[in-house]
Simulated assay, not measured.
Amino acid sequence: MLHYNFPPFCVGEARRITGPGRREIGHGALAERSLLGILPSPEEFMYTIRLVSDITESNGSSSMASVCGGSLALMDAGVPVSGHCAGVSVGRFTDASGQKEVYVTDIIGEEDFFGDMDFKVAGTREGVTGVQLDLKARGLNLEQIERIFAQARRGREKILDIMEKAIASPRKELSKYAPKLRSFKIDPDKIGKLIGPGGKMINALQDRYGVKIDVEEDGTVVVSGSDLAKVEACSAEIEAMCAEVKIGALYRGKVVGVKDFGVFVELAPGTDGMCHISELAEGYVEKVSDVAKVGDELLVKVINVDDQGRIKLSHRQALAETAEHEPRANA
């Protein structure tokens, strides 16, 4: 979104400032369209971008100045643009017969008034991203258009040289005042688990981490907040919560329930499994409480997931598997 403001005082006029007129809408649209060619995709950069171009003095092409200033501002803000974009206008003067013609680059106000053309061309070193032509003559032939584009390119490249000396690439980090965003995908079937009954789970996560969580129907999750560490922590918890539990995976979970026949272990928020008493240790276990109590951390291995999604765990097999990978001491 580019807002182009052209107040009366920038051309030495004194009149009431009202809503945007033809000039503001047209020039703003040209500058915005020219800069769209260098912007990253929404997947690469999820932020809404608002550029404001305030014209304080105008004696030339303020729309092309907005392109150049906008490109510099985007890089300075840390937006990962593909490169700089610059613009320049080309004018034309002819004699009364129209046989002799002169093309001038970066025309000023008087040249625009007395000339018969204002050909604006914006782009990068690779190509053109925006064009606008104001013409008082009856038309242009292909040879004239080719000459105009070549002259505009030479002017544009000189401007790009100067811009790149000021800032050659986007800043690595956004402003500390910009919200921090993290986007990732989960299985759409797990959306209900993330939201919870009546929004209980998602609201609890937002309150705990002080973030905002948005979920799309395709499983895209966007976590935003002012503290990057909390955004990352919340994202990690959501990914763990919605991750697919695979047979053979090891988890260090928390005992949330103790029964005579075994214990219930929380593998991730909202995901529990049951470890039978026979899987708590090698040999005979008389009481479950001899091995684990509520609140204990327990290393477990997923040994089965049935058709209803119930997870069967084994502490005994997890200990045996980790012991196999531990280095043995020399005798």
Rank of each mutant, 00 (worst) to 15 (best):
D296H: 08
A204V: 06
I311H: 03
A77M: 04
D116F: 00
D112Y: 01
S63G: 07
L35W: 08
D290L: 02
L30E: 05
G139N: 14
I108S: 09
A31Y: 06
K254I: 14
Q132R: 04
T48D: 15
T94I: 07
S278C: 11
V67K: 05
G295M: 11
A122N: 07
I202V: 15
K158Y: 08
L298A: 03
F93L: 13
I148C: 05
G21K: 10
S183W: 02
V88P: 02
P40C: 03
E157M: 09
V294C: 10
E326W: 01
P20Y: 04
V211T: 05
V291K: 03
L267Q: 00
T105Y: 07
E239C: 03
A86W: 01
F264S: 07
V90S: 09
G98K: 02
R310P: 00
M75Q: 11
G210Q: 10
G192R: 09
C275Q: 02
P80V: 03
P269S: 13
G21E: 06
A204D: 15
I186L: 11
R33G: 04
E32N: 01
E239I: 08
I159R: 00
G270P: 07
A168C: 08
T124Y: 00
R16P: 04
G78V: 03
D307K: 11
V211L: 06
I162E: 13
D218T: 05
S235M: 02
G219W: 00
A281I: 08
G192K: 05
F119C: 03
G198T: 11
S62R: 10
A29K: 14
A150R: 15
A329G: 10
P40V: 12
G199S: 02
I167D: 06
K312W: 02
L140Y: 05
N203E: 14
E146L: 04
D54W: 03
G270V: 13
A31K: 01
A178N: 08
P7N: 09
Q144W: 01
D95F: 10
C10Q: 07
I49Y: 05
Y284C: 02
T48Q: 08
V231I: 05
G225L: 00
F149A: 02
E232S: 01
K293Q: 14
I213Y: 08
V11Q: 12
P170F: 10
G70Q: 01
G196H: 08
G83Y: 00
E266S: 10
R23T: 05
D134E: 15
E297R: 12
F114C: 09
S175T: 10
L142G: 04
G78W: 09
H27N: 06
